[in-house]
Design a protein around this nucleic acid. Structure first.
Lengths: 345, 345
DNA sequence: ATGAAAGCGCTAACAT
DNA sequence: ATGTTAGCGCTTTCAT
């Protein structure tokens, strides 16, 4: 590593002191315009680059935000991160990304790294494994550092959150199918006790109730979320005495598995309708194209940044615990083609 | 921000000095086991967390690697980042991610941020806009900091690289189509002068030559890479007097656009075959499923980390400029169904 | 408007 | 095996 230019080099080259240089570089009130200009010029000439570490160590602000997500490969999270970085860079922040891979221990490790790096704030979406013990996040709050939870949040952490209205997401998904004429709607989702999945299920139940449709326990398949799990869910459902005529899956991957298995069984939509969650990139291109619930990841990211910027403005970041709720939207595609229309035709 | 525990707190609580604490915490050779234990215990008791900034400022090592990619939303790059983070965290490094959004100025800005953050090394894949002037990266080399370029590399930067064999990727794609019996193969790709795209085109030409097939300039459409560009490319090709019977697209998104437009024109595979590059998540699920070239992003990430770890071991990181070349693989799916077989049936 | 000097939390000679 | 001390490069009082 070569020796880099410091403010001392600029100072001595100009015969002034470092404090003047430091102030001039950050155009502090109380610096003559002329010295400001000479300093800036000399800085450019010497190819000076500020050392963020030193400034951070002194000032206590790193201008780095830590982000913890289950996986960066899930398009939903990638979109959120994309959006966060975009919004944040205007305020001069950069981001450090950690992946939990749905494991609690990796989440803890990542969090510790972020804390040790002295990030100015943390935005996180919980690992599936992190359901009851979220004490590791408590430390962030204790340090009075902004912590924002998004999507996969947890009630016992008293922090600002950004979620989609998952109850409504489940409600909308079921209502959409009901509108299209489907009569018995199953739900294939995860057995993990993450709040958002529970809420979706509740929304689904509420929709059924409001339409005087019975809720059958055998129609609710709790397993995992993946293409494979979707296929598996269908197998299970088809073994039941009374078959559903529509299936909601916990995410688009699972929905894809459901659709594929249905096609193999000769029961593809509209015989049995399918809905997913997340509006993945592939969802509009598969065949049949997948109706789904758009969770607006870009909005989620934007709101996280807004919350963060508000939090650092306050003396106590946890003064008000704003809960942002992003409203989901139905994306209507072929996999929920109207059963009614089909019958008529 | 609360006052956090420092090694001074541990030292005074134990009536020893900070240097002993510092050494004990990093179990230095020359620390009695007994003090090591008392120190570690006290550290735990006081909930001590090392301040990476301070240590980095002193030692010159942040244990942070900067990554610059065009977009985190492209699955190819997300996979690479995922793989890099995975490999790197075993050695105690974390990553800062910057997105160039294919813009040179954003790339420069991101790079500066990384440099100011004093990252221990940088891994980057160039923005489409960054074709001739790559001088901003020269600074990294001047600082004698490890810089590794992957996928979108540049000849004028004398640094280790990890690429796929793009010539061979193009060659394999064309050869695959030729094997399947296609007779006139077009290529829809980007007009940007990024090396890898040029190489793919050359590989394609080589395959044609080796099979005594003529290369028609009108069959090579230079535009952008996107679903829309794919559709546009097809429109152009179909306007030519002599139509191709197969189309290679610069990436899977473009290939998807090509396939969609072909279907609308009633010319879907195997009438006109289609190949893409990247093996995106959706590629196996669209209809027809997309034959493509797998670029093995996980391997690319792994190799980047290997290179980096080697570089920091050497006195001069740029002693040897290893060029890792990952071999691409053909993924054979429906969009290149054998034309020959179809004819027979 | 500028300078002097202390110190952020840690590491690493150099002592002992 | 442990202590002393001088920084790393910057910010920030407090003087002038």
């Amino acid at each position: 590593m070569k020796k880099l230019t410091t403010i001392y080099d600029i100072a001595s080259a100009l015969g002034i002191t470092v404090s003047t240089v430091s102030r001039a570089l950050r155009d502090f009130p109380g610096t003559s315009e002329s010295t400001r200009k000479t300093v800036v010029d000399m800085a450019a000439k010497l190819d000076y680059r500020p050392n963020k570490l030193a400034s951070a160590l002194k000032s206590g602000k790193t201008y780095i935000i830590g982000i913890i997500v289950p996986s960066i490969e899930a398009h939903f999270f990638a979109s959120i991160i994309h959006s966060i970085e975009d919004e944040l860079k205007e305020s001069g922040y950069s981001i450090i990304v950690c992946q939990s891979s749905e494991s609690r221990s990796k989440e803890v490790k990542g969090l510790n790294t972020l804390l040790e790096t002295q990030v100015d704030g943390i935005m996180a979406s919980l690992a599936l494994e992190t359901t009851d013990d979220v004490s590791h996040f408590q430390e962030v709050i204790n340090q009075n550092k902004p912590l924002i939870l998004f999507d996969r949040v947890h009630d016992s952490l008293k922090v600002p959150t950004v979620t989609i209205n998952d109850f409504r997401a489940g409600f909308l998904a079921a209502s959409h199918l009901i509108e299209k004429g489907y009569k018995r709607i199953a739900f294939v989702t995860t057995s993990h006790k993450i709040k958002i999945f529970g809420e979706r299920l509740e929304g689904y139940k509420q929709a059924l109730r409001m339409n005087n449709m019975a809720i059958y326990q055998e129609d609710i398949i709790l397993g995992g979320l993946s293409i494979k799990d979707g296929r598996f869910g269908v197998s299970k459902l088809l073994r039941n005495e009374n078959r559903p005529d529509a299936i909601i899956a916990g995410d688009d991957f699972t929905a894809l598995g459901v659709a594929r298995k249905l096609r193999e069984a000769g029961l593809e939509p509209p015989i049995i309708g399918v809905m997913g969650f997340a509006n993945e990139v592939f969802s509009s291109y598969v065949s049949p194209s997948l109706s789904t619930v758009d969770q607006h990841p870009d909005l989620i990211g934007k709101e996280c940044v807004k919350l963060f910027l508000e939090m650092i403005k306050q003396a106590n970041p946890y003064d008000k615990l704003t809960q942002i709720i992003v409203e989901p939207t139905i994306v209507d595609r072929q996999s929920t083609r109207s059963y009614l229309e089909q019958k008529v035709v």
